[in-house]
């Protein structure tokens, strides 16, 4: 597991473009939000974005990295060797988890600089969980893509509905029942909900705890689904 984590970290180090994408893009997007809206609106919408950006960026990078592992044949080689599947997934999760943490730290620090009140350190936890969830789902969907081009096309399919229904663009209370049910089933909803509540200085309320549990559960589920897609034998 540690060997795999170090190997993935080594590969990322060789790819400064991707690292920059991971660390800088969320902050740049947040800056756009700041100057797109009035300061008041930004304090309302900004925190929700803390639950969106880490997810999107980690999703894309992980899906592509795992896809490369499949197409290059290295995955088949690893699975033919004495390696446990869980070690492979946890190796990935460890490195990308560390990156998600650094990314969230940068994003939150920058958001505070832009004028967002971030009273709770718990925000970091939400952003990290959100990034790790994006990573786990990225691992999972890499099975359904044959090329990196297809991964690009999966972004709108997996990410946009979650974003639209997460409550960022309109309060969930005003959604039609069916849409709200769907919204209830999508994990990003809980990341957006938790970060909004935390910025409103609710502290560790029951709702925030529920949000965190749902995010953690969804991440575990995605990792288990990801493990199930690693087949040692193929047709």
């Amino acid at each position: 597991m540690i060997a795999t984590a170090l190997r993935v970290a080594n590969q990322l180090r060789r790819d400064p473009g991707t690292l920059a994408l991971l660390l800088v893009v969320p902050a740049v997007l947040m800056t756009l939000f700041r100057y797109l809206f009035s300061e008041f609106l930004f304090t309302l919408v900004g925190p929700s974005m803390l639950g969106v950006f880490p997810f999107i960026v980690m999703f894309a990078v992980t899906a592509v990295t795992m896809l490369r592992e499949r197409t290059a044949g290295t995955l088949e080689r690893l699975l033919a060797m004495p390696m446990r599947k869980v070690d492979l997934l946890l190796g990935y999760a460890l490195t990308f988890g560390v990156i998600a943490t650094v990314q969230s730290g940068v994003l939150i620090a920058w958001s505070v600089f832009l004028g967002l009140d971030a009273p709770s350190g718990l925000l970091v936890l939400v952003a990290v969980l959100d990034g790790v969830l994006g990573m786990a789902l990225g691992l999972f969907v890499s099975v359904f893509a044959r090329t990196e081009f297809q991964v690009g096309q999966m972004m709108p399919a997996f990410v946009l509905p979650q974003l639209l229904l997460s409550g960022v663009f309109g309060p969930r209370e005003e959604m039609a029942d069916v849409l709200r049910w769907i919204s209830d089933a999508l994990p990003m909803t809980y990341a957006v909900d938790a970060s909004s509540r935390l910025v409103r200085d609710e502290g560790l309320s029951g709702e925030v705890v529920r949000d965190l549990v749902v995010l953690g559960g969804a991440t575990l589920l995605a990792l288990v689904l990801g493990a199930a897609t690693l087949r040692r034998q193929t047709r």
Binding site: R14, G73, R77, A80
Partner: peptide, 12 residues
């Protein structure tokens, strides 16, 4: 097992 296409990491 050596596969026909070289299965090693190009970026290492």
């Amino acid at each position: 097992y050596q596969t026909q296409a070289p299965s090693v990491y190009a970026d290492l």
